[in-house]
Design a protein around this nucleic acid. Sequence first.
RNA 1: GGUCCCGUGGCUUAGCCAGGAUAUAGCAUCGGGCUUCUAACCCGAGGGUCGGGGGUUCGAAUCCCUCCGGGAUCGCCA
Length: 570
Amino acid sequence: MLSLFLDFKRQVTVALENALYTLGLKTDDLGLEPSQHADIASKVAFRLAAQTKSNPMEIAERIVAAIELPENSLIGEIITVGPYINITVGRNYLEKTVKRITQEQESFGGGFCNGKILIEHTSANPNGPLHVGHIRNSVIGDTLVRILKKAGYEVDTHYYVNDMGRQIAIVSWAFSRFDFDSSKKPDHAIADVYIKANALLNEDPGKVSEIDKLMQLVENGDQSTIKSFDDAVALAISGIKQTLLRMNIIHDSFPHESSFVRSGAVFRIIEEIKATGRTKDDNGALVVDLSDYGFEKTMVIQRSDGTSLYTTRDLAYHEWKGKYGDRIIDVLGADHKLISGQLKATLNSIGKPEPEVVIFEFVSLPEGSMSTRRGKFIPADDLLEQIEQGAYLEVDRRRPQMPEKFKKEVASMVGIGAVRYDIVKVSPEKSTVFDWKDALDFEKQGAPFIQYSHARACNILNKAQDEGKWDMGYQADLSLLTEDTEVSLIKKMAAFDSIIDICARDLKPHTIAVYARELAEAFNQFYRFVPVVSAEEENIRASRLALVNCARIVLANSLDTLGIDAPESM
RNA sequence: GGUCCCGUGGCUUAGCCAGGAUAUAGCAUCGGGCUUCUAACCCGAGGGUCGGGGGUUCGAAUCCCUCCGGGAUCGCCA
């Protein structure tokens, strides 16, 4: 169903274009934009000032005078402020919004897109636990998944498992030399031996040839080596899955790199690339020339010992994805900027669909960049543990009389929500430095603020129900919702679907985070300004309860899109 | 050194791609508000050379050039 806001915008466009036609004017840009001064504003007078050789203010006046609105328009008022044309929504728009939210409930705000999307995110190497940098990928990726699903797409989420790279060879090699602590969470135990092995390889570079040998064995299908790789990978992935699940993140499938070697897909795609004539031999390695795509350096797709690289296997993986998805999306760290550009160029050169790549910049530590290999990282599990403990103290302080189970559940929802919100609210292209004090700060107006607003709405509805003052079926008189705080709350709720639409198109998940916060703010302002359950007149009380119910729904939908739980009480 | 990303009040940050109305919020600071639906809230105040300098334009945080600072990357790692 078309978004009411977009419908409103469309009506504004038609009204303005008709007015311009009447005046004998023409432009291809109405300059429509959201504005703090109106629900939508047009800068078209600026565009036409030169054309008509008159000043913009005058043009604006003439345009507004020429506008004719049809019956039942969603448009309310159209006025000029200097050269700007400011348009506000009408009662029709506001009342339709409340009706629609009440009807559509959880499905409100989406369902306008269709098609299949394959999205890949996280895909961290299975050589240790996820750290606080990896989960930026996970949270951005999972939020995109939720946005795209909300928009109406069928979404398949992948974690691409590197089960045959050098890192995994080192892990497998480490297993034969160091004790594996099976009392630990498996991904953490893997990191322990991986770090030791790297230290040893550093001291004794002669042992590197043993790693190379393992990689060749795996590529050539040696069963026992493959099994030792697989066992290590499975252990790491099982731990990683636990961490992701704790953050409300689930992948539909875990395609393994090795499957593209063993199926012959890697061999076939190398042949396809060779057929373009852009490959050449470089000291025994096979390289691709992408200079016509703006890449000065060639890209290696086969080592001189004949084994494949991550890049090659990734090409085969993307070729496969291109067959099954209408849109292919990869969420990757900034270190993949160059390689993903080369990947896209190579796919393009053999006529295959290219992925849309969402790049996020790195999370570093105050002392420098993180490294699993050197053991310099903060595991995501540590962060989640500490934040939940911090959240528990807060809940215990505020609701001491509540049972233990309640406190634990709320602490978990609030803690995880705070982590997810803190990550997703920052736009991906900013690099960040992890700071414990900041990460554990509950005073910021983040997820708990939004969750609390939702709990507050639930609480009002519960109270009204207990007092026999609320009945879902009651037809509220929506024309009574005229207070400023009521109107701005409705406008904010109405914007939800257009925000989803923008997020799904631009793949910018931080937009929905900002929106959710603003929605909570609008609801809190309403809550402070007007009484609901205690409203004197019954029909006013009923209309406000209908509004609170809408707020509850849209807050819940927003939180769900952010992958944050919406507590009914906290 | 080449290429890409970032630089916005003390700190964090929106807006930049599609240039326009007093530059957006949060934290922190200061002041006000709980006999009234959970104050994890609300209202208000102070605080900004939008990294520096040029340019384009009637108009630049936004586009172009240049310099400075931070991050990423520059073939047989992923």
